[in-house]
């Protein structure tokens, strides 16, 4: 695993996302209220813009989600699967917290 440091946990407010650059890839990193971390692709597959990190975090039937701010499709933070369109999916990346630092790995 090729872990890369993203930021201190403090820079990641609960129930919010931030954009990160991991080896030229735009990644959206999220922290939920119970301090669970998720990392998915930041590029919205429906419009090609790097905006997923700016979406609203929430849940659909308990599944943690983010809604793209562009056209509001909702994606699972766990699997990256678009819950409104089975053909679309975001890549998901391993993410962890070491001490107070958030790290993401590329496969």
């Amino acid at each position: 695993m090729n872990w890369q440091r993203i930021c201190e946990l403090d820079l990641l407010p609960p129930e919010c996302g931030v954009p990160a650059l991991v080896h030229d890839r735009s990644v959206a990193v999220f922290r939920t209220r119970d301090d669970e971390l998720f990392a998915v692709g930041n590029v919205d597959p429906f419009c090609g813009a790097g905006v997923i990190s700016r979406g609203i975090v929430g849940d659909r039937g308990g599944e943690p989600t983010v809604a793209s701010p562009m056209l509001k499709q909702v994606f699972s933070l766990r699997t990256g699967q678009c819950l409104d369109d089975p053909a679309a999916r975001l890549p998901v990346y391993p993410v962890r917290r070491r001490a107070d630092v958030v790290e993401v790995a590329l496969p």
């Binding site: 692709g41 590029v43 597959p45 429906f46 090609g48 999916r89 890549p91 998901v92 391993p94 496969p107």
Partner: peptide, 16 residues
């Protein structure tokens, strides 16, 4: 113009 990752997205890089 943007290159949509759409078609490839469903099959690629689902990493764990």
């Amino acid at each position: 113009p943007v290159a949509l990752p759409m078609p490839a997205v469903a099959t690629q890089e689902v990493s764990g």
